[in-house]
Amino acid sequence: MARYILRRSGYMLVTMIFVAVIGFLIIELPPGSYLEFEIARLRQLGGDMAPEQIRALEVRYGVHDPIYLKFWKWFSGFVRGDFGRSFEHRLPVSELLWQRLGFTVLISVLTMIFSWVVSIIVGVYSATHRYTIPDYAITVLQFIGLSVPNFLLALVLMVFAQQVLGMEVGGLFSGAYRNAPWSLAKFIDLLKHLWIPILVIGASGTAWLSRVMRGNLLDVLNMQYVQTARAKGLSERTVIWKHAVRNALHPLVMVLGMSLPGIISGETVVAIVLNMPTTGPLYFRALLQQDMYLAVTFLMFLAVLLLIGNLFADILLAWLDPRIRFE
């Protein structure tokens, strides 16, 4: 098991290096980068400081260096925690990163737990009640969940919460707590705000996962060993929960890795509408402003999050499935 984890982690490191290459390419790709813009601005400003500042920038980002050196400068800095500068915010990227990333992780993890619990229950229910009216109703909901763009769902829910429930919507905190230090009251306030993002981000993933769960379970229910379990005289409940569901979970864990990108990219988009202090709004704004060091740092961290999520999924799978465990 330990060796398996070690080997998987090795793979992950290699993938990360390639992720970095792609990230670097994305920084280099745009025609007019913010860096050039900044240099031009400094040059126009003139003054005594300007030429030195320009030189410092050129050295730091390797403007005149060959491409591989430029990559190395950026990559080695990245590994050491120097992610470059956000030219728009006039701050090192690292100062903008951590808190927002923290909220992104929090919301993604909560969303995932939510969508797993709901998917399994709904999937089992609809697979065992096939061709009944609730199953059809669930199917309709699943189709809708998969068809509504998440930002639209966010808008609709916000309008609903504001107009019908009379809630203050948007953000993760009420005005009073936004800049307050952490306290129990602030935490409770956070929980009150979390349901909309979790519901919205989780909707399509849950719709999809519960469909996968239903399909898996239907497949497993066709397996011979389920007949064997029934032939023993076990009750249908035991047959389903002990013998079928356990095996239907394997493919679900395998697609866990696939459901993560959806959650993370959903989170980034929805955050704009919900006005949340997470990576999304800053990331897309940075892209629009061509503030590439900021944008790519976010993108890289999102990818790393995904890789870690996939690693967890694989370990979970190995733990769940004896056939993998003993390989």
């Binding site: 390639f18 993560l260 892209l287 629009l288 061509q290 790519v296 999102l302």
Partner: peptide, 16 residues
């Protein structure tokens, strides 16, 4: 490698 990026942010980066 491609699958290890969240889709919409990657699309957005390329579109940018």
């Amino acid at each position: 490698l491609i699958m290890s990026f969240p889709t919409v942010p990657l699309w957005a980066a390329l579109a940018a």
